[in-house]
Computed example of a mutant assay.
Amino acid sequence: MTQKIVIGLLWLSVVILEASEAELVEGYPCIRRNNQIYCTGLGSPRLTEKIDKFIDENKALIRRMFGDFEEPDHEFNPNVGRDDHNGHIIHKRPKRAKSNSYNSNKIDSCESSVEIVTPYWASNSAGKIRAIVNTQHLQQAIQQEVCQSVQTKRCNNDCSCEQKYKWHRLLAYDPDDDCKGIFMDWFLFPSCCVCRCNVL
């Protein structure tokens, strides 16, 4: 019992620490950290029902946008393999290997971790927050590479590690306008970590 309490307190302290370094996104079960939205879920079960209903009523349209989708062989559990702190990480690989697969004599100046995420919410190209369609029928995953530090042994002084981003086109839902249904939209996610230096 004591061990469970200690583990619970440790988890709570991590959540409080992360929340203090992040900004809560008003009206959504999310925080904004490092220019990204981290959410524990869609929030309202009613929203999930609306998305599922639209998919069920518009299967031909969804197939044109997403491709074929089938009933899963197993019961969908959105929390399997997810990171407790972010809610949306389904698989986290170790930090990017120091050796480059093209040339073993070279290494990356900046360390990064590669994550595969299935986001619940994201800001689109117009800065509007949209629900990302991730249900038992439709699962959209993004591979992202996130910087682990601002400076490293090889990237320091007038240089620093900088996060780069890439646009991804995903099926989304506007919770404020049911008439839009499900549509394609553009969202920005971390793509790689580079060492940038000041011009002399």
Score class of each variant (00 low, 15 high):
Thr2Phe: 12
Ile5Asp: 12
Val6Pro: 00
Val6Asn: 09
Gly8Met: 13
Leu9Lys: 10
Trp11Met: 13
Trp11Glu: 13
Ser13Gly: 07
Ser13Leu: 13
Ile16Gln: 05
Glu18His: 10
Ala19Gly: 14
Ser20Trp: 11
Glu23Ile: 07
Leu24Ser: 11
Leu24Met: 13
Leu24Arg: 14
Glu26Lys: 15
Glu26Ile: 06
Glu26Asp: 15
Glu26Met: 04
Gly27Cys: 10
Tyr28Gly: 04
Pro29Gln: 13
Arg33Phe: 04
Asn35Thr: 03
Ile37Trp: 05
Ile37Tyr: 02
Tyr38Met: 04
Leu42Met: 15
Pro45His: 09
Arg46Thr: 05
Leu47Cys: 04
Thr48Lys: 14
Ile51Pro: 02
Asp52Val: 00
Lys53Pro: 00
Lys53Tyr: 09
Phe54Ser: 02
Phe54Asn: 02
Phe54Leu: 01
Asp56Met: 09
Asn58Trp: 02
Asn58Tyr: 04
Ile62Ser: 06
Arg63His: 09
Arg64Met: 08
Met65Pro: 00
Asp68Tyr: 09
Glu70Ser: 08
Glu70Trp: 02
Glu71Tyr: 14
His74Pro: 01
Phe76Tyr: 15
Asn77Ala: 08
Asn79Gln: 13
Gly81Ala: 04
His85Leu: 15
Asn86Val: 05
Asn86Met: 06
Gly87Trp: 01
Ile89Ala: 10
Ile90Gln: 10
Ile90Cys: 07
Lys92Gln: 15
Lys92Ser: 15
Arg93Thr: 07
Arg93His: 12
Pro94Val: 07
Lys95Val: 05
Lys95Asp: 06
Arg96His: 04
Ser99Asn: 04
Asn100Leu: 12
Asn100Ser: 08
Ser101Arg: 05
Tyr102Asn: 10
Tyr102Pro: 01
Ser104Leu: 09
Asn105Met: 10
Ile107Trp: 03
Ile107Asp: 07
Asp108Thr: 06
Ser113Lys: 12
Val114Ile: 14
Val117His: 01
Val117Arg: 10
Val117Ser: 07
Val117Ala: 08
Pro119Gly: 05
Tyr120Pro: 02
Ala122Cys: 02
Ser123Asp: 11
Asn124Phe: 01
Asn124Lys: 04
Ala126Phe: 10
Gly127Asp: 06
Lys128Leu: 12
Ile129Thr: 14
Ile129Arg: 05
Ile132Lys: 07
Ile132Asn: 08
Val133Phe: 03
Val133Cys: 14
Asn134Gln: 14
Gln136Cys: 11
Gln136Lys: 15
Gln139Asp: 08
Gln139Arg: 15
Ala141Asn: 06
Ile142Leu: 11
Glu145Met: 10
Ser149Pro: 01
Ser149Cys: 11
Val150Thr: 12
Gln151Met: 09
Cys155Arg: 03
Asp158Met: 06
Cys159Leu: 10
Ser160Ile: 03
Gln163Ile: 09
Lys164Ala: 07
Lys164Arg: 11
Lys166Ala: 12
Leu170Pro: 00
Leu170Cys: 02
Leu171Gly: 02
Ala172Lys: 04
Asp174Ala: 06
Asp176His: 09
Cys179Lys: 13
Cys179Ser: 10
Ile182Gln: 00
Phe183Asp: 01
Phe183Val: 03
Trp186Gln: 05
Trp186Phe: 06
Phe187Asn: 05
Leu188Glu: 13
Phe189Trp: 08
Pro190Phe: 08
Cys193Ala: 02
Val194Gln: 09
Cys195Leu: 08
Cys197Arg: 02
Leu200Glu: 10
Leu200Gly: 14
